[in-house]
Amino acid sequence: MSKVITPPVSQMKASRGGTLYRGREGMWSWVLHRITGVAIFFFLLVHILDTALVRAYNAVISSYKNPIMGLGELGLVGAIMFHALNGLRIILIDFWSKGVKYQRVMFWVVVGVWVVLFAGFAPRHLINVFSEVGH
């Protein structure tokens, strides 16, 4: 007969707090929008500070010229592009009468446009970043 067993830990994909909600495109686009939004906010905070302090500006900008900051810039551009494109999607959901209906399609359009833009930017940027290292 069936008996009560305690599942082995390896099967416990669910944590004590519960399972992760399995939302679809709408939920994950919101999660990404939040993460990229907060990341961009912290960048802007630092960026406004370093441009505001004129004396520190040159020192800060020259310190950006290393591969780690270069990769950070790559991430920053990726985050801004997603946040901008998904922002347009949200505006359409709110103000276009058919926006709600096509929200899922619009999400994949956002992803598609993001991939195209990023593919155009990333190689050019990485060449710049790593060719300047030697100088």
Binding site: Y21, G23, R24, G26, M27, W30, I93, D94, V100, Q103
Partner: peptide, 15 residues
Amino acid sequence: RTTFNCSEACPRGIQ
């Protein structure tokens, strides 16, 4: 925040 979880969850299919 238009995450659409509610529309997916509704057992009556309400948009």
